[in-house]
């Protein structure tokens, strides 16, 4: 009888202890929402959310509602969320200004190179085309041979190859990407993609309908 009590008692105690510890760990995580004081109240953060001339934007530049996304080209999650972008930005082209910034993770081999190609394509007016094709083909180039594939994508977009190569070597492109990255660090980005609506970090909408609801709730 004593052995029985010991066995079942140990199980209950172990389950309660493990359960309590795991719940406490889950509860201790920092909230996903960046506190308002961090996201809007410091001049440095306010400045980050101001729209710049060299920002890559879609939608209405005069829109009251601005959605800023920090993203990476090689992260699979970023590809998943980018799949909503075309549809949503065309549906809300009049009401929303969509801004896309770079947050290339160093843990991905080709993230920064992809960002440089996107930026260089942007100089020839094809940023969004390159952006879309980089994501569509992400599973192809993530495995290797990225530079050749980027070059093929650039050719398919009829980019001036010589100009592209010159731009890729331009330190200003690298600086632009790093500057976005540093802004992201200042904002305390914990993962990509991260979306800010009116300077407030929001939970990622995981479907088109969720994205629409998010926008409707903020309009």
């Amino acid at each position: 009888m004593k052995r029985r009590i010991l066995l079942w008692g140990s199980l209950v105690v172990a389950m309660v202890i493990i359960g309590t510890i795991m719940i406490q760990i889950a509860d201790r995580e920092e909230p996903v929402q960046v506190p308002e004081t961090e996201s809007t109240e410091t001049p440095e953060v306010r400045e980050i959310f101001e729209i710049r001339e060299n920002d890559w934007i879609r939608g209405n530049p005069d829109a009251d509602l601005i959605i800023v996304k920090y993203s990476d080209f090689q992260c699979p999650a970023c590809r998943f969320y980018a799949s909503f972008d075309n549809q949503i930005s065309s549906e809300y082209a009049d009401e929303v200004l969509f801004v896309r910034r770079y947050f290339p993770l160093s843990s991905f081999q080709f993230s920064r190179l992809a960002a440089k190609y996107a930026e260089a394509a942007g100089r020839q007016g094809k940023f969004w085309e390159m952006h879309d094709l980089l994501y569509i083909n992400q599973h192809v180039w993530s495995g290797g041979g990225a530079e050749t594939i980027f070059q093929n994508i650039a050719d398919s977009l009829d980019l001036d190859s010589e100009q592209l190569q010159t731009d890729l070597l331009d330190p200003a492109i690298q600086e632009r990407i790093e500057s976005d990255y540093q802004d992201g660090r200042t904002l305390g980005i914990r993962g990509v993609p991260t979306i800010y609506v009116r300077g407030e970090q929001v939970s990622l909408p995981n479907s088109l309908d969720a994205y629409r609801s998010l926008i409707e709730s903020k309009l």
Binding site: D27, E29, P31, S203
Partner: peptide
């Protein structure tokens, strides 16, 4: 309503 903490690459 939290997000699990993990390295960003894991998604």
């Amino acid at each position: 309503g939290e997000l699990p903490v993990c390295t960003v690459i894991e998604g």
